[in-house]
Design a protein around this nucleic acid. Structure first.
Lengths: 149, 149
DNA sequence: ATATATTTTTGAATATTATACGAATTTATG
DNA sequence: CATAAATTCGTATAATATTCAAAAATATAT
């Protein structure tokens, strides 16, 4: 056993997929070369960032999902983007937005369980010294990444 | 001009893509048939829900992103799931979670502009009679759907 | 309005890739 | 340790993407 599954999950999370031109061509009843042309155009314009898989995260050991709302500390208050891009690198981070309102950052986190979630939050608080964080746990995910579960 | 782009965006939002088996095989240096076997297994187990594209949403006229936090009204308080699955059907909804804490639902919304966002929120409040909603606007999206923008 | 350039669509030929299948190997189970 | 089940993997084939050149449609300038 080579545990290829684990590697696949990593690759599929943000790429290593491609459009199904033939299927689309049949579906919208246009020649596949026309579909091909239009897709390449979207790609070259940068409108399409990636092709990827969406998982049933419970089945790949990432069933715990939390939103973390963050107030940056005084050090970083003027530069939320730099912090955001650093946080974006973590695999556990599904999304991160710089926002209006009470909090500067909203992070959506996926972890195996509460323990892993807690370790992650502890780690980033320690590292970046956030003034305040507030978490909301997702009890049930009905739709993610435009896919209904 | 057949405006195939619009149709593609609709299809790619939640499907019509497929894994790149040959590319993965080269990347992790395993036979493509082994990769194929492992992917089909993930699919049959239901671990993979879909293969899809991730967009630069500004470039496809969906540059406005808002989180909407919802308190259900008394009518629906006992059954957040039913409401959530109905809301999930809207194209504008990227994700919807049933949550702990102050609000029962967190919706991530993508619209063309503030006007479209406002119309959408008005519509669902009117339809479902939420007790309270609170919105947070994303000023900058650093990562979405596990893809760094 | 008309000529010209640009973009988009399309079919035919080719290159690449996924898939089916069977055999071999590895791993799990009693 | 024997047997069953799961996984790996090579070969052959089917399906698909891609290239290319031409035609059509659209935009632009005169």
């Amino acid at each position: 056993m080579k545990n290829i599954t684990e590697k696949l999950i990593g690759l599929f999370k943000s790429g290593y997929c491609t459009p199904q031109i033939a299927r689309i061509a049949k579906h919208i009843k246009e020649p596949s070369t026309t579909i091909h042309y239009n897709i390449k155009k979207l790609e070259s314009e940068g409108a399409i960032k990636a092709y990827k898989a969406v998982f049933d995260y419970k089945k790949i050991n990432q069933g715990t999902c939390n939103y973390v709302f963050i107030n940056l500390g005084q050090d970083h208050y003027g530069d939320p983007e730099q912090i955001a891009y650093q946080l974006a690198k973590y695999d556990e981070v599904e999304s991160i937005d710089i926002c209006t309102g009470e909090f500067e950052l909203i992070i959506k986190l996926r972890t195996k369980d509460i323990d892993e979630y807690y370790e992650f939050v502890k780690k980033i608080i320690k590292k970046y010294g956030f003034r305040r964080t507030e978490s909301v746990t997702s009890l049930k995910q009905v739709k993610t990444e435009f896919v209904i579960l």
